[in-house]
């Protein structure tokens, strides 16, 4: 059985399962020319702080809906691309994956662009928050105001994806 294309939860992430999920149909038809993937990893430093670990939380039903929206945007912008995106929540230690993405397409450019676009949009609109634990304290990281219809954010994500 294939992994779901879109998911959020506390389990460790498994990129090969996502690759299998996006390629199962393409493997039958032989139409895929490329599979691109992205793994977001917890690093041990941030703005000069020595980070020990992160804790993620999410408004899960809306997070899943945001992934569906991102997938729909990608289908409209890069027809034929199939996307899988899983985000982990809870405590995540240094070096472990917080988010994994796979995109399959007939063309490498579309697969890579879709992957990059997906992570940019997650950072812009998905209701997920990370709390950074560092030497001497902890802090909620706050990035973008989540507005899926913000035209400037959409344009920024597309510009970065296609750079």
């Amino acid at each position: 059985m294939n992994a779901p294309l879109l998911a959020i939860g506390p389990a460790p992430l498994d990129l090969p399962a996502l690759v299998a999920a996006v390629t199962s149909r393409g493997a039958e038809t032989g139409t895929d020319g490329a599979i691109a993937s992205f793994i977001g990893v917890v690093r041990n430093h941030n703005v000069g702080r020595r980070v020990s670990h992160l804790e993620y939380e999410a408004y899960e039903p809306l997070a899943l809906r945001s992934f569906e929206r991102i997938s729909t945007e990608i289908a409209a912008r890069w027809p034929g691309v199939r996307l899988a995106l899983h985000h982990r929540i809870g405590r995540i230690d240094i070096g472990k994956a917080s988010v994994v993405i796979a995109a399959a397409s007939a063309h490498r450019g579309h697969a890579c662009a879709a992957c990059r676009y997906a992570i940019e949009r997650v950072k812009q609109i998905s209701p997920i928050w990370k709390r950074e634990f560092f030497e001497g304290g902890d802090v909620w990281i706050e990035g973008a105001t989540a507005d899926p219809d913000d035209a400037q954010a959409l344009a920024d994500a597309e510009r970065v994806a296609c750079a």
């Binding site: 977001g40 609109i125 990281i141 990035g143 989540a146």
Partner: peptide, 8 residues
């Protein structure tokens, strides 16, 4: 209510 998000 959603404070600024920081997924990824």
């Amino acid at each position: 209510f959603l404070p600024p998000v920081s997924g990824g």
